[in-house]
């Protein structure tokens, strides 16, 4: 059974409306509002593991600027890494030169995520269960794979997959406000 993943308290984050209230001056003396932090983030990413790595680094930096705490960012990085690597490896079969889309939206206590690609559908048109064998097992029986979907399912809620018009769409939420 999936444990209850209700967030344990919401961290205080800077309201973008407050940030917009203060003004800064440019060198020619005009008042300009400071840049408004975006609560939504959209990326088109090329289908290679190195592009995924780069995207993860920049996204983590942008989420930090949005006031998302370190523990939350760690979980987000793990989940997004697994989802994007799955697209590169399975949907696109490690073919470089393709692109996929990642959209994130920060709400009060959830990060809404959507990963979309035009690669191959998921086998059986469903995301894998991501079960790991019961431990202990013999050394030679230790799993070397299958960890990715396990991690995604552990750290997300409301995971949905749909295939429409040759497009895979995976949506899920990551609870924010973890304080472990």
């Amino acid at each position: 059974m999936k444990p209850d993943r209700a967030p344990r308290g919401v961290p205080s984050r800077k309201d973008p409306a407050d940030a917009a209230g203060s003004k800064s001056r440019t060198s020619d003396g005009r008042d300009t509002p400071p840049p408004q932090p975006a609560r939504s983030l959209s990326r088109s990413i090329e289908s290679t593991p190195r592009d995924v790595r780069r995207a993860l680094k920049t996204i983590s930096g942008e989420l930090a600027l949005q006031g998302i705490g370190e523990t939350d960012r760690e979980a987000i990085e793990v989940v997004l890494a697994e989802c994007m690597n799955n697209v590169v490896e399975h949907a696109f079969g490690e073919t470089p030169g393709r692109r996929f889309d990642l959209r994130l939206h920060i709400a009060d206590d959830q990060l809404f995520c959507r990963v979309e690609d035009r690669g191959k559908p998921m086998p059986g048109l469903a995301p894998p269960a991501g079960r790991l064998p019961d431990l202990p097992v013999r050394l030679e029986d230790l799993p070397e794979g299958g960890f990715g979907w396990f991690l995604i399912r552990e750290l997300t809620c409301d995971l949905r997959y749909c295939r429409r018009d040759d497009r895979n769409s995976l949506t899920f939420q990551i609870p924010l406000g973890r304080c472990d």
């Binding site: 890494a81 697994e82 690597n85 050394l139 030679e140 230790l142 960890f147 396990f150 991690l151």
Partner: peptide, 20 residues
């Protein structure tokens, strides 16, 4: 700083290569 499921799989694989 970061290890994903492929990295974890590789660490487990090394352990299996080293044997009992």
């Amino acid at each position: 700083d970061f290890l994903d499921s492929s990295g974890l799989g590789a660490v487990v694989a090394v352990m299996k290569i080293l044997g009992k």
